[in-house]
Design a protein around this nucleic acid. Structure first.
Length: 770
DNA sequence: AGCTGTGGCAGGGAGG
DNA sequence: CCTCCCTGCCAC
């Protein structure tokens, strides 16, 4: 009988002393893998271990004639290896296998089938996760960066004139090395690079945009120079395939490179993932990110991209120093951002490099698939349909109000899933709630451990705790994800609707007690506490009293108190803390698509409104108008450029425009222009910075110019356009004034002198539309 | 060999 | 002018 008694799905199959750093495919046939372990003296050992393929029991309605019993018998009577149908984690291989079984069931062809990568089978069937009992720096992490002397154009693998001139490497043990092409051929340089890489034998290779540039470029140059780019642990060359990663609303496409026996980590992906939450990185370049985190040395060497070729001719040592600084910074960024992903690989059957470049839904699925294969249980196919409901959002009061308390339900969706017995209908083994429960318990334990630990240990424990949190919070999303094997849209709906009901209940409780609810969003409530609740202690007591009115397992936490709040619209507000600090939320206050001068204007107006200084708002508005008129920009073109991310390929854009499905847009038109002029093509996921110039066409996209083209000695930006933009930006504060007052504050008409005392801030009770 | 979800605001082109 | 519709960005 199949083994259905499941041990802890998070931990089964593990050996606490395991220090596996890599699992590598042997040959192409693939029923053996080589398992590398790093020993305590920092050397490597390896063993070759067999992969036992798994048999699939299909209960899919689609395959009604599938002779399940026959296959089951054969499996049990076999030599202990299931030879008839192999199932793998990859969805593509899974569909292939299903089609294959269907054909076999109808008498066409052989039931034997192989697909997928042995590493994945191996990790899944044994339940192993990598790096058990290890810390990030137990691995040998090498950083790689190359410099190419490209004259006037962007380096391209297709251009034979663009040779590699420098290969810089460093590692986390303090070693570093810069190879360059002085006095020898590129071929010799590349050959030495391969030798050094193989000799250093890193477990992990890190680089910034290493998927997008360094690896494919080196690969192509090696091919041209006749050097085998054999940097795999088994002497193979990297293999590559197209992939994509979603960062909130953005999707980045790139070519993955896999190196046998090693993990590739692209810090560009880590940086983008980080920015989904923080959203305040200036840009995603190595230099920008390093400065943002404070990893850039004060005396670091900088060389502009366009000056690299010239620097290489005139002062090569300077370029060498620059390249070395690049890899040192890459190492610091990688270490800083890798923690939680690294610890994820101790709970998810996934290689480190894979975990870095996949989203949380893939990780949850890996946990479930491991449990199902372990139990010899078939996997479901994704359910069809869509999710209908989401969080409840409303605004009840606009204007400046205070004092404010923020209360939110702790882990709303995970709590609902745990306490309302939510699970996908297809989860016959009940692993979904079991894994969620284990992860939650482990996270709470880890959090408690972190709080009690010494600082050095606490950082590591906190990274672990973050890793748990990321996965836990993604369970809900994966329920509603149309491509997830274990999805269930009606259960996702039930979670969202339950959340809405709980939130409405909390609003009612606060109102009944005499509180005034300002704004709510999904799991949190901003409110003015009842008159009899004064001071932090009483506020905390009031909030914990709310928990008592809620079902068991749903807890409301006290998550902040503020002197006042500027409430504008749903999901758009600002908070003034008791320490004078300001927080801004919402696209009308913080959007990066607003020009920098406008963003600053919004922030300053907000601060003044929270301070009640209407006179200063008016003066600020007048000052800003004059500055635009006089083209006085603090930071040159960066003050008024707009940056927009390209989300679709130019061909798709052009096709949709031709079909009338979308309108022309400045960012795409500029990208097209550059491509036509032979410049570096703009890839999906990249940002295009532009400004609006004077004259030149009525429509915005006709008047747009690349920000780099702006010349401070001959400024040609349209001041009329930017004055309009200022007024549009001011429009965001319209809810705070009567229409007449708004016109007084945000206009130049002070014929009779502006009298701030005649203007008052307006507080409006909205009906709430929910 | 691939991608968590819904709700909401701002901006711009296109057409009345 | 206005409305409609699409895209990008943001909150949670």
């Amino acid at each position: 009988m199949p083994d259905t008694a499941l041990p802890d799905p998070l931990l089964f199959g593990h050996d606490a002393t395991e220090r596996i750093v890599a699992v590598q495919t042997l040959g192409g046939a693939g029923d053996r893998v080589r398992v590398y372990r790093r020993l305590s003296d920092d050397t490597l050992s390896w063993d070759d271990e067999p992969v036992h393929p798994y048999f699939f029991l299909s209960d899919l309605r689609l395959i009604e004639d599938f002779p399940r019993e026959r296959y089951r018998r054969q499996a049990l009577e076999g030599d202990g290896h299931y030879r008839h149908l192999l199932a793998f984690e990859s969805r593509g291989a899974y569909w292939d296998a299903l089609r294959h079984v269907e054909r076999a069931a109808s008498g066409e062809g052989d039931a034997a089938y192989t697909a997928g990568g042995p590493e994945q089978q191996y990790l899944t069937q044994t339940g192993r996760t990598l790096f058990k009992g290890m810390a990030l720096d137990d691995l040998r992490r090498l950083q790689l960066d190359i410099e190419v002397a490209a004259e006037g154009t962007f380096p391209s693998a297709r251009n034979p004139a663009h040779a590699v001139v420098i290969v810089a490497m460093s590692d986390n043990r303090g070693w570093n090395r810069v190879l360059d092409s002085r006095g020898r051929t590129e071929r010799e340089l590349l050959a030495e690079m391969v030798d050094v890489l193989v000799e250093r034998d890193p477990d992990v290779i890190e680089g910034h945009n290493i998927y997008g540039f360094d690896l494919p470029y080196l690969s192509e140059r090696c091919r041209r120079a006749g050097v085998r780019f054999a940097i795999g642990r088994d002497g193979t060359e990297p293999r590559s395939f197209p992939s994509a990663m979603r960062f909130a609303e953005r999707t980045s496409a790139f070519d993955v490179a896999e190196i046998a026996g090693r993990h590739v980590v692209d810090t560009l992906l880590q940086v983008q993932a980080y920015d989904v939450v923080r959203r305040d990185l200036p840009n995603y370049t190595l230099k920008g990110v390093a400065r943002y985190f404070g990893f850039a040395e004060a005396d670091r060497t900088y060389v502009e991209g366009r000056a690299i070729a010239r620097t290489w001719r005139e002062d090569p040592d300077r370029l060498v120093a620059y390249a070395l600084d690049d890899v040192l910074e890459t190492g610091r960024i990688a270490k800083h951002l890798s923690g939680s992903t690294f610890y994820l690989t101790q709970m998810v059957p996934m290689a480190y490099g894979t975990a870095v470049r996949t989203g949380p839904a893939a990780k949850i699925e890996a946990l479930l698939v491991r449990g199902y294969l372990h139990a010899r249980q078939s996997l479901p196919r994704p359910g069809r349909g869509g999710q209908m409901s989401g969080g409840y959002t409303d605004v009840f009061v606009t204007g400046v109000v205070g004092p404010i308390v923020y209360a939110d339900v702790e882990s709303l969706y995970p709590s609902i899933m745990l306490h309302y017995d939510v699970r996908p209908a297809s989860d016959a083994l009940g692993l979904f709630p079991e894994i969620l429960r284990s992860l939650t318990a482990l996270r709470l334990q880890t959090k408690a451990d972190a709080a009690a630990a010494a600082p050095a240990q606490a950082a590591e424990l906190d990274a672990r705790q973050q890793a748990f949190k990321i996965v836990i919070n993604s369970f809900y999303g994966s329920l509603g994800f149309s491509q997830a094997l274990f999805n269930d849209h009606s259960e996702a709906d039930r979670v969202a609707r339950t959340g809405q009901e709980l939130l409405r209940g909390i609003i009612e409780t606060i109102r009944t007690a005499g509180g005034r609810v300002i704004e709510v969003d999904t799991d949190g409530v901003f409110f003015v506490p009842p008159p009899n609740v004064a001071g932090e202690d009483e506020e905390r007591r009031f909030v914990s009293g709310i928990t008592d009115t809620l079902p068991t397992g749903i807890r409301v936490g006290f998550d902040g108190r503020f002197r006042s709040m500027l409430s504008l619209k749903k999901k758009n507000y600002a908070l003034l803390g008791y320490d004078g600090s300001l927080k801004f939320r919402g696209s009308s206050l913080v959007s990066r698509s607003t020009e920098r001068f406008g963003r600053r204007f919004v922030r300053e107006v907000t601060a003044l409104l929270l301070a009640g200084d209407v006179d200063a708002v008016h003066k600020l508005y007048l000052r800003q108008r004059r500055a635009i008129d006089a083209r006085q920009w603090d930071e040159g073109v960066e003050s008024f450029q707009r940056a927009e991310t390209l989300k679709s390929p130019l061909e798709d854009y052009e096709r949709d425009v031709a079909a009338g499905r979308r309108a022309r847009a400045a960012a795409y038109e500029l990208a097209k222009r550059r491509a036509a002029a032979g410049g570096r093509p703009v890839r999906v996921g990249e940002r295009v910075a532009y400004y609006v110039a004077r004259g030149a066409g009525a429509r915005g996209f006709e008047a747009a110019r690349f920000a780099q083209e702006w010349d401070p000695t001959h400024p040609d930006e349209s001041t009329a356009h930017y004055l309009d933009r200022l007024d549009q930006t001011a429009q965001r504060f319209e809810p705070v004034f009567t229409p007449a007052d708004f016109r007084l504050v945000f206009s130049e008409e002070d014929l009779f002198g502006f009298d701030a005392s005649a203007v008052s801030l307006r507080v409006v009770e909205e009906n709430g539309d929910g």
